[in-house]
C-alpha cells in the first residue's frame, strides 16, 4: 500500500473506463449527465492510462477493468479490440487484466458475442424484471419500453453459450410486483443477480425514497429474495457478499469506494478520479470536478493529486471515521459510499444515508437473522 497526501492509497482493485458517455436509451433513474455526447475515448487516453497504471506500483496480480458509465456497446468493437491489446501489452508482467462490462443489452448481436468470447469479457446486463416492471423506468428516447429488445440480446448471449450477470434497480414498482419479478429471474437464471435499490444520485430523486414505508417494505422484499435464492439456487450478489463477510472475513470489511485509488475511474476525456465512480462528471464549488488529474498532462501521476481532490480525500476519510465511531453496522460495511453521502447530504463527512439503510443495513440484518436461524 502506498501513501498519498497523508492517506493510505491503493492497491488498485478496479479500473472503470468510460469508453463513451453516450447512451442509446433514457432510463428515468439514471444519474449520468451528458448521455447524448457521442465522444469515444481516444486510444491515446487508453495508452496513457495503461502507462500511468503500469508505473504506479499500485497493481496486484490481477485487476478488473470495467467498461461502464454510458452504454459501452455504442462504441465500435474495433475500439475495444485495440484498447484491450494496448492494456494487455502495457500491463504484461505487472498484472493480469480481467475485462468486464455492463450493458443495457439492446445492441448485443452475434458479432458482439464472438468478441466477448474471444476477449474473455464478463458481461453484465441491466434488467429490472418483466415488462411492466422493467419498462416503467427503462425507456427509449421516444418513450417506449426496452425489455423486448434487451431480451433479444440476452437470447443471443445464450445461443452463443455465454452466461451473464444481471443487475436490477429495485423501484417501488418492483416492490409492488415482487412475485412476478422473482418468477422472471427464476426463468432467466443469471449467473448472479445484483440488487441496487433506486438511489438519489446525480439528477435522479429516488422514487423509492419518496414512497411510503420504503424501508420496512424493502427489508420484507430482501427476506423474500433470500428464501427465493435458497429455493432456486440463483446467487444474489449482496447476500453472497454479506455471508462471506459474516462467516470468514477480517472485520471491519473494507469499502473500496472510500479508500483512495482502490477504484480508479477514467473518463473519455482523460480525467481521472477515484472513490465512487459516480462522482466522475459531478461538480462542487469546493472540490471542482472531483478529478485528481488529467492523463493528457505530460506530468500526470496517479499519486499527485490536485488540491480539490486532496480535500475530497480528507473529507472522505473523516466521513469513514464518523461511520466507524457512530454506526453499529460499520464492521460489515466499511463506511458509507461517498457518492450517496454527497447526493443525499451534500457532504462527504457524516454518516447514514438512505442507501446505507437499504443497501447494507437491511442486507446485514437479513443475513445475520438467516445465519442465527441456522444455528438453532
Amino acid at each position: 500500500m502506498s501513501e498519498v497526501s497523508g492517506h493510505p492509497a491503493g492497491p488498485v482493485r478496479q479500473i472503470v473506463l468510460q469508453a463513451t458517455g453516450f447512451c442509446n436509451i433514457d432510463c428515468r433513474y439514471c444519474y449520468l449527465p451528458d448521455r447524448l455526447t457521442r465522444t469515444v475515448m481516444p486510444l491515446d487516453v487508453v495508452s496513457a492510462a495503461a502507462r500511468a497504471l503500469a508505473s504506479s506500483g499500485m497493481l496486484d496480480d490481477e485487476v478488473e477493468i470495467r467498461w461502464h458509465a454510458g452504454e459501452p456497446l455504442t462504441a465500435p468493437r474495433d475500439f475495444y479490440a485495440r484498447a484491450h491489446e494496448i492494456l494487455r501489452r502495457t500491463l504484461a508482467g505487472i498484472t493480469v487484466p480481467r475485462f468486464s462490462l455492463q450493458t443495457n443489452g439492446l445492441l448485443i448481436d452475434d458479432a458482439w458475442c464472438s468478441f466477448f468470447r474471444r476477449e474473455d469479457v464478463r458481461v453484465g446486463v441491466s434488467l429490472d424484471g418483466p415488462a411492466h416492471v422493467h419498462d416503467a423506468y427503462r425507456r427509449t428516447r421516444n418513450d417506449r419500453g426496452t425489455l423486448s429488445r434487451a431480451m433479444r440480446g440476452v437470447e443471443r448471449l445464450r445461443a452463443a453459450g455465454l452466461d451473464c450477470d444481471v443487475i436490477s434497480v429495485i423501484t417501488p414498482v418492483t416492490l409492488l410486483h415482487q412475485e412476478a419479478y422473482l418468477d422472471f429471474m427464476a426463468r432467466l437464471r443469471p449467473r448472479s443477480l445484483g440488487l441496487n435499490p433506486e438511489e438519489t444520485e446525480g439528477g435522479n430523486s429516488s422514487t423509492l425514497h419518496r414512497s411510503s414505508g420504503f424501508e420496512p417494505r424493502y427489508r420484507a422484499f430482501l427476506r423474500s429474495v433470500a428464501a427465493w435464492s435458497a429455493r432456486t439456487g440463483v446467487a444474489v450478489r449482496e447476500l453472497e457478499r454479506m455471508r462471506e463477510h459474516v462467516l470468514s472475513h477480517r472485520l471491519p470489511v473494507r469499502n473500496t469506494q472510500n479508500e483512495p485509488l482502490s477504484i480508479v475511474t477514467v473518463g473519455t476525456d482523460g480525467g481521472v478520479s477515484s472513490f465512487s465512480p459516480e462522482l466522475f462528471g459531478w461538480r462542487s464549488p469546493d472540490h471542482g470536478d472531483f478529478v485528481l488529474g488529467d492523463l493528457r498532462d505530460p506530468g500526470f501521476r496517479l499519486d499527485a493529486w490536485r488540491p480539490g481532490f486532496a480535500r475530497l480525500a480528507d473529507e472522505v476519510a473523516q466521513g469513514r471515521r464518523d461511520c466507524a465511531r457512530s454506526c453499529g453496522y460499520f464492521a460489515l460495511c466499511g463506511g458509507g459510499a461517498p457518492a450517496n453521502k454527497w447526493a443525499e447530504h451534500q457532504a462527504f463527512t457524516g454518516t447514514r444515508t438512505r442507501f446505507c439503510a437499504l443497501g447494507v443495513m437491511a442486507v446485514a440484518d437479513v443475513v445475520l437473522d438467516e445465519l442465527e436461524g441456522a444455528r438453532r
Binding site: G328, D369, R375
Partner: peptide
C-alpha cells in the same frame, strides 16, 4: 443505527457475527 436480532435483543453486529462464527480481508463496493 443498531442491530436487532432470533432473540429480539439489541446486540452489536460484532457480537452477532462472533456468535455465528463460534458455532482474509473483505473488500466490497
Amino acid at each position: 443505527p443498531v442491530s436487532v436480532s432470533d432473540t429480539g435483543r439489541v446486540r452489536s453486529v460484532e457480537d452477532r457475527v462472533q456468535r455465528i462464527r463460534t458455532t482474509h480481508p473483505g473488500y466490497t463496493a
